[in-house]
Every structure is written in C-alpha cells, then in structure tokens.
Amino acid sequence: MTEPLLRVENLRKYFAHTKGILAAKNMGQVKAVDDINFTIATGETLGLVGESGCGKTTTSKLILHLENPTSGKVLLQGKPIHGMEREALRDYRADVQAVFQDPWSSLNPRMTIGKIISESLTVTKWGKRAEIEERVRDLLIEVGLRPEHAQQYPHEFSGGQRQRIALASALASKPKLIVLDEPVSALDVSIRAQILNLLKDIQERENVAYLLIAHNLATVRHMAHQTAVMYLGQIVEYAPTKSLFDDVQHPYTKALFSAVLPDHPDLQNDEIVLAGEVPSPLDPPSGCRFHTRCPFVMPECSQEEPPLRETKPGHLVACHLYPTA
C-alpha cells in the first residue's frame, strides 16, 4: 500500500482538569481525543462528524500542530509532525492550512486583503515583491474575487466574500491539506452553496485534500469521500461516504441520521430520538461510551469496549451488534 498523505495513529489528547487557582488540585483528565486512527489520501476529503464536545476540534488542532498529543502520532507523507522544529515546521505549516468557521474573527481587520493573503508568502520569502503581487492577483481570481480587492479591508466584504478571502490565504502556500472547520455554518443559506461549489472546484484544480469538520450530514455527503463519526473522543464509525450513507450501522450514527430534519413535510424520519445528553468526557461511561443512550444496549456493552472492526470492505464500526465480516 502506498503511504497516504496524512496518517493519524493511536492519537490521544488528555487535558488535565484542575480546580482552584493557587495549589490547583488535579480533578482528573478530560479525554478529548482517545485513541483515534484515520488516513486522508491526496486530493480527497475526509468528513469528520459529531456533536459539540466529541473531540473534532481537538483533532484538528493536533493536526494543525497547535496542540501536542498525549500519545500517538500524526504523520504527513510518512513523517511524524510533532517534534518538528524551525524549517521543518515552517514547511509543514505551508503544507497544512486551515479555514475556520467565523470569517468575521479570522481575518485581521487592520490588514488589507492583499496583505492577509500574501502574509504567508512574505514570511517564507516565497519570491520577489512583484511575484508575490502576481500570486495574490491569481489567488483572488481563483476564489472568485477581483484583483482590485487586494487594496480593500475585511470590513468592506460580506460573510461569503470573507470566507473566499480566508480560502485564498490558505491556498497561497500551495498546501497539500486544508482543515475546514465548519466552513459554511456561519454563512447564509443562499451563500453556502457558492462556497461548497468553490471548495470542490479548487480541490479538482489543485488536487488538495480536505479535512472537513461539520455537523451537517448532508454537507458531508455532498463533499466527502470518506466519513468518520466521533462520539466522546472516539471514532465509532468510519467508511467511504457512500457506504456509510447507504448502510448506517452504528446506533449513534443512526441517531444522528434520525436527527436530520426532513427535506419535505411528508418525510418524517425520527425513528431514534436519543434521550438525555452527551455524558461528561471527564467521566466517560465504561465499556462502549454510547451504551448509556443506546436504544439497542446489551449486557456486554457496559463491560467491554467494542473495537473498531471491519464489517464490510472499508466500513469500520465500533459496536457489539456487528460481528467481524
């Protein structure tokens, strides 16, 4: 097998939970990310789905080298990223970029659009001034804006346009992977489709991979080649998007699908309405972490943690209901 673009191996991130300011007492650990594995291939999109607090954002921070893992590895083209220094880290930052949810807080209001986009190029001494200006012009056109926008400031743009600017600045260093953290959920409905289409066009042209973090399943279905579902810091189902959407297996994924609102008033599909809320990651349930809310719970679920097993080619599920294929 050829090495994928990005490989995440047994990744764990525990945060210490302390009480008090002076002489802080250790109250335990929050297992934000607890032993996850996945890969992203060149030019493909992995959709990461889950509710707030499931560890999606911590995962993205680990991949962006903004947090150090408690254990486990993130490898880009076979090279572990944590422990990198100076030049290697700078190259990594050029290879892996991010676009965040809120385009109102992610752009510096005191910088012109041209400055925002060219910043990473200037820092890495990418080329001469004229070359950088040329690159900024090309990037603005690529994301559907006009070259003269380079002289303007963020407040002059709408949300959709700002998200285009954020994307242009992520693309400046020709990254291999872009982490998209809820890239359209802050935008208006009529603008979302424009940005999703743009993201797809760019992927086709530049062969860039995406890690798409989203809570909207229809968006993931539309964008992602592979989909992983997270619950309380763990991946519970991981499969090619088509396989996952055609044959949902894990009860939690089924509940997420039931919670999708209908496209038409005659399609009411809430077969599984989960009772209660996500338990605290400070004290996750024993065995399968979903057993406290699972409608199909069995005696062994509270005893034994189900491993992520392949139930059919490429389709992994962590649930005692499904024996190995």
């Binding site: 409905v189 009529s190 424009q194 229809a218 539309h222």
Partner: peptide, 24 residues
C-alpha cells in the same frame, strides 16, 4: 425555488449545488 434547491440533500450524490449568485 432557488433557496430550496441550494441546500444539500441527504439523498444527493457528489455533484454541483444550485447556487443563487450575488448577495441580498
């Protein structure tokens, strides 16, 4: 019509979404 068409649907395959150009 455009607003309903621009929302990704669960049954959709990967493809282009209908867009409403411009801004309100």
């Amino acid at each position: 019509q455009a607003l309903i068409a621009s929302v990704p649907k669960m049954g959709d395959q990967r493809g282009r979404l209908h867009t409403i150009e411009g801004q309100p």
